[in-house]
Design a binder for these strands. Structure first.
Lengths: 248, 248
DNA sequence: ACGATGAATTGATTTTAATCAAACCAGAGG
DNA sequence: CCTCTGGTTTGATTAAAATCAATTCATCGT
């Protein structure tokens, strides 16, 4: 049986061959399924579906049928307000689950757009529910994954409600860094898949502010920026930017 | 059997007597359980627990065992960042469910503080999971409730990321108004249970800005403010404040 | 290789909300 | 009834980020 640790340390390349593995990281990884349960799960998962850069995996308003596990690539999820303002609610990379917002109304409430050529596994939600009735570990894990999304959202609220531009950017870069690290990529050097405007939308800033703040970090020797390539040169100082208490 | 509409229209007073009813609105209301299933559910629910104004229902760091359905009263939920900044993540009133963030790690990540004398039903989560394996409608509904929380959080992100102070306040007041209405209270006249500072924390504003903005609304004849008593005098104009597109 | 296009940077200015500061008010307890 | 306290309002000033505007840069297709 595959232990959580083993899979967690696998490089993305290793994850490519099995669709079960792809969905494992977020949906059903740390749960120790039996062989039988694994193969049940396997049946559930349809062929991997490729999504080209710029394409939508789904859009707000479309009927909800499935969750999607990102197998490969990079997505942004965003909501559009009635008056047309976009708010990016998250960036999602391999192993993460998309579409949980849609369960509540059986209609997608976000757009999910691929920011690079990507692949997803489609997980029909009614199958997940059926299976999770028979496999308590899966049930438990589904709940954890949804809860984790709520916790993540609370973190973003804290960021948007309390932090200054510099802190937001620092938090953003450190978060990306950490997530790349988990996936076996460099934590200190990575390529941003999104525009400054999309970063700004996520962080509640205008694109000019994002650009300026990145430049400032560069001037301070914290990072190196070459267009979308970011190198973190002083992670500790970035972290200090976050922990420094400003008020009271 | 109780239809959703019936219960939805019940006044809070009617909801007092049965603990099942209290948790119905959010957790298991719109699902049409059989009598048997209802009584199963009933067993699960422990005695209502009173929480005095100012007391914590739970605090971040405490082990997670149960979700809580607010039976009566008013709560704020808030996260504290490492450096001590508070972000109110939500206000919760009767019929709403608290604690879903804790499922992910089995530890509470928020504080939940009563803003007036309140009562909650404790719903041991392992019981919910057990029961929801046998009662698909409950399973489905639990998923919907968690998903709704995610959608709600996305709405807050949109508010924090995109809106100006006036829009945030307008959205906040209209949201409260609507939620009071659903519970059979006046939608145009209500008492704020929270301080200006708590409103500000939720909306990503300082308390002075909240106060000033309320005063401005009053000057414009949109609302009347007498300390914590709010009267909405021109709901349409408040809504217009939201829908008006400012950029592009 | 070259122009076109979308993205990013940088500067100048304005707007917005935060901050600092000083009253003011309402309710609780003696 | 009065005082104390926490909460609120309001004003003056400052700080932060948005906005407006102009280049510059990078990529892609021809």
């Amino acid at each position: 049986m595959i232990s959580p640790i083993q899979v967690r340390d696998m490089t993305p390349r290793h994850l490519r061959n099995s669709c079960v593995n792809c969905s494992l990281r977020e949906l059903c990884l740390p749960i120790g399924l039996s062989q039988d349960e694994m193969s049940e799960l396997d049946k559930l998962i349809t062929q991997a579906r490729p999504i080209k850069r710029g394409e939508a995996l789904y859009r707000a308003g479309e009927p909800f049928r499935s969750l999607y596990a990102v197998r490969l690539g990079f997505f942004k999820a965003s909501v559009i307000s009635e008056d047309g303002r976009e708010q990016v609610t998250g960036f999602h990379m391999s192993g993460e689950l998309l579409g949980m917002d849609a369960i509540s109304t059986d209609v997608h409430t976000c757009d999910a757009i691929a920011l690079e050529d990507s692949e997803v596994c489609e997980l029909p939600f009614s199958d997940i529910e059926d299976l999770s009735r028979d496999v308590p570990l899966l049930q438990r894990h589904l709940h954890k994954v949804m809860s984790r999304e709520i916790v993540r959202d609370h973190g973003v609220m804290l960021l948007l409600g309390n932090m200054k531009a510099e802190e937001r950017l620092a938090a953003f870069l450190l978060n990306l860094s950490q997530r790349f690290a988990v996936r076996g990529y460099s934590s200190s050097s990575f390529h941003l898949r999104m525009t400054r405007e999309e970063i700004g939308s996520y962080l509640g800033l205008k694109l000019e502010t994002v650009s300026r703040t990145l430049s400032k970090f560069q001037d301070q020797g914290l990072i190196k920026v070459q267009n979308r390539l970011i190198e973190l040169e002083n992670i500790d100082s970035l972290k200090k930017l976050l922990n420094t208490c400003h008020d009271e």
